[in-house]
Simulated assay, not measured.
Amino acid sequence: MTSNPVAPRTRTGPAAPFAVPPDRPGPVLELRGVHVVWERELIRFLRNRLRIVTSLVQPILFLFVLGTGLSRLGPATGGYDYRTFVFPGIVAMTVMFTAIFSAVSIVWDREFGFLREMLVAPVSRTSLVVGKILGGATVATLQGLLILAFAGAVGIPYSPALLAVLVGLMLLAALVITAIGVLIASGIHQMEAFQAVLQFVAMPMFFLSGAMFPLTGLPAWLHGLTVLDPLTYVVDPMRRAVLAAIGTPPALMARLAPGVSWGDWIVPTGVEMALLVALAVLAAAVAVRRFGHTD
């Protein structure tokens, strides 16, 4: 007696899940990944109203409290309100702190396991890093716009041309600093370590940028440090744009905003912008490479 073999079952319903070919990385999928990460950063910022308000406290203190106090020291700014002089540096400071601290979400996501889910998504890690940088830069620029609204309170006109220049410089600064923050966060796994490192990086970057003082007559060691500071190449064109907009005489302009000098050569604005773009690209590329060896 022989047993009949069981006839193979045929599937007549919908195809099995594994029968559906997975999405392959392509331009559309990569752009979608960039957009999702960018949108997530923006939503987190807009929903956290306390963060928006508290981020304004330090710049306002620097501008209206410290600026008003230091303006009593003497005519160092040639008769201009000292707050007018430091305003570009305060705007740059706001963008810098917001941009560099936006990378803290990477460490947060790593601790809670969300970063691993992002890294296994069917998009390249380049898209994830670019989305993160664009998101952080957008948030930092929006925060900078809130401080920019105080321009009239310190004697700076709301000129469309001036505002366009300042917003463009803010966005470029936000891209560079966010890329640096993402690069730092790519190799850190503890929140406490990340905050300690950022404080070590952010505070010297602010004070060495010339945000609170002119770059003329500095000691050689201090001048060398200001030249190495990327934020210097943001504060310098911002200050020159502001001083030009309020009609500063050339002699006073040369003293308050002499430009960044490499030896006897004054770095043109175009070169400053090119350096910032190159630094942003380099930091982003290294961050992508480091993400490829983590998690």
Rank of each mutant, 00 (worst) to 15 (best):
G210C: 10
Q190D: 00
Y80S: 09
A220R: 08
Q190N: 01
D109P: 00
L171P: 05
L231R: 03
V65E: 06
A16Y: 07
A76R: 10
F64N: 07
A121M: 05
A76S: 11
L42N: 04
L42F: 06
M203Y: 13
G259L: 09
R125C: 06
L61P: 09
L31N: 12
I60G: 10
I184Y: 03
E192K: 05
L198K: 03
R40C: 04
W108I: 13
V36R: 15
T216S: 14
V36I: 09
G144T: 01
V182H: 01
R290N: 12
L162K: 14
G187W: 07
T54P: 10
W265R: 14
R44N: 08
A285W: 15
D81N: 14
T294N: 12
F150A: 12
V107D: 00
I106E: 01
V86A: 05
H223P: 02
T178F: 04
R44S: 09
M253P: 06
D229I: 08
R83D: 09
R72E: 14
A92V: 01
W221A: 15
V165Y: 08
M212N: 07
V65C: 09
A7F: 04
V95Y: 01
G79A: 12
S209R: 07
G270E: 10
L73E: 09
A274E: 02
H189V: 07
T178Y: 01
V53M: 10
T10Q: 08
A19S: 06
V267C: 04
